[in-house]
C-alpha cells in the first residue's frame, strides 16, 4: 500500500477540483433543478412563463407603443435573441450570489471545493436557458432561419462569453455576499439595469445616434454583454429577418441604412471572451482567498 503524504486539509484546487468532481457537480445541479420546482404546479414550466411575461411587456410597450417594430424588422426575434442570453446572465448572477450562503450547513460542516456552489448555479441557469433557446429557434425557423456556420459560430461565441463572465461574477459576488449580506441587494439592482445597458430592447444604433462615434459608444460596445447580445442577434435574428437590407458588399443594415451590427463583431466577440477568461482567473483568485474564512463568517 502506498502511504499518502501529510497534506494540509481544505486547500482545494478551486475550479479545477470542481471539474474533477463532475459527478458531485451533476448531482448538485439535479438537486437544484428538482428542489426549485418541487411542489409547484407548473414545475419547470415556470422557465417559460417568466421570459414570456417580460417578453410580452417589452414587446407591447417598446415594440408596439413606442413603434420599435417599425424600425427593426422581425422585432420579436430581435428582442428574444437578446433576452435569452441576458436572462441567462442575470439568473446566473442572482443564484450564484446566494449559492454559498444557501449551502451554509454544508460549507460549515464538510469541506468541499466551495467553487462547487457558484458553478452548479451557473449550470442550472444554463439548463434553464434551454427552453428559451428552443422557442427562439422555433421563432427564427418560422421567420425563415437557415443554419449557417456564421449563425452557429456567433451563438457559441456569445454563449461562451456570457457563461464565463457569469461564472466569474458569480464567484466574486458569492464570496462578497458571505461577508456583506447587503450585496444581494446590489445584485438585484444590477439586474434591473443590465437589460437596458445592452442593445436588447433597442438597436445599438440608438446609442450611436446619441453619442456619435465617440468615446461613449466605444465604452458602450466594450461591454462583453453587449457583444454577446449582438452575437445572438446575428445568430438568430438576422438570418430570420424577413426584410433583410444589405449594403452592396453584404453588410447587414437596418431599414434606415445604419449597420445592423458594429464592425468587426467577431473580433470584438473573441476579445470579450478573452477578457471574460482573464476576469474568471481573477475572480477565482479572490474567491480562493476569501473562501478560507467562509465557515466562520456564515
Amino acid at each position: 500500500m502506498t502511504v499518502p503524504p501529510l497534506t494540509a486539509p481544505g486547500r482545494g484546487g478551486g475550479l479545477l477540483e470542481v471539474a474533477r468532481r463532475r459527478y458531485l457537480l451533476r448531482l448538485l445541479v439535479r438537486r437544484e433543478l428538482r428542489s426549485r420546482y418541487q411542489g409547484s404546479l407548473l414545475g419547470l414550466g415556470w422557465s417559460y412563463v417568466r421570459p414570456a411575461v417580460s417578453f410580452a411587456v417589452y414587446f407591447f410597450v417598446v415594440g408596439v407603443f413606442l413603434k420599435m417594430s417599425k424600425a427593426i424588422p422581425g422585432y420579436p426575434v430581435f428582442l428574444f435573441s437578446g433576452m435569452v442570453v441576458i436572462s441567462f446572465f442575470t439568473e446566473t448572477l442572482i443564484t450564484s450570489t446566494w449559492s454559498v450562503i444557501g449551502n451554509a450547513p454544508l460549507v460549515q460542516k464538510i469541506y468541499l471545493p466551495r467553487e462547487m456552489f457558484p458553478a452548479s448555479s451557473a449550470l442550472v441557469s444554463a439548463v434553464h436557458m434551454l427552453p428559451g433557446l428552443a422557442i427562439l429557434w422555433i421563432g427564427a425557423l418560422v421567420g425563415g432561419w437557415t443554419p449557417s456556420a456564421l449563425g452557429f459560430g456567433s451563438m457559441a461565441l456569445g454563449f461562451a462569453i456570457v457563461a464565463v463572465l457569469g461564472l466569474a461574477f458569480g464567484l466574486l459576488f458569492a464570496a462578497i455576499n458571505v461577508f456583506f449580506r447587503d450585496f444581494g441587494q446590489v445584485v438585484d439592482i444590477l439586474n434591473i439595469v443590465i437589460p437596458w445597458t445592452v442593445p436588447m430592447i433597442y438597436p445599438w444604433t440608438a446609442v450611436q445616434e446619441a453619442t456619435g462615434n465617440g468615446l461613449g459608444l466605444q465604452i458602450y460596445l466594450a461591454n462583453p454583454l453587449a457583444t454577446a447580445t449582438l452575437l445572438f442577434q446575428r445568430a438568430f435574428w438576422w438570418p430570420a429577418n424577413p426584410h433583410k437590407a444589405e449594403l452592396p458588399d453584404g453588410t447587414p443594415t437596418f431599414p434606415d441604412g445604419r449597420h445592423a451590427f458594429p464592425d468587426h463583431l467577431t473580433v470584438r466577440g473573441l476579445a470579450s471572451l478573452l477578457a471574460a477568461v482573464v476576469l474568471l482567473g481573477l475572480a477565482q483568485m479572490v474567491f480562493f482567498r476569501l473562501q478560507r474564512r467562509f465557515a466562520q463568517e456564515l
Binding site: L6, T7, P9, G10, V107, Y111
Partner: peptide, 16 residues
Amino acid sequence: LISGVMQPDGGSVGVR
C-alpha cells in the same frame, strides 16, 4: 481545522 472546513491562523495541520 482537521477536516479542512476552517483554516488555522497560525501553525499547521497535516492529515494523511
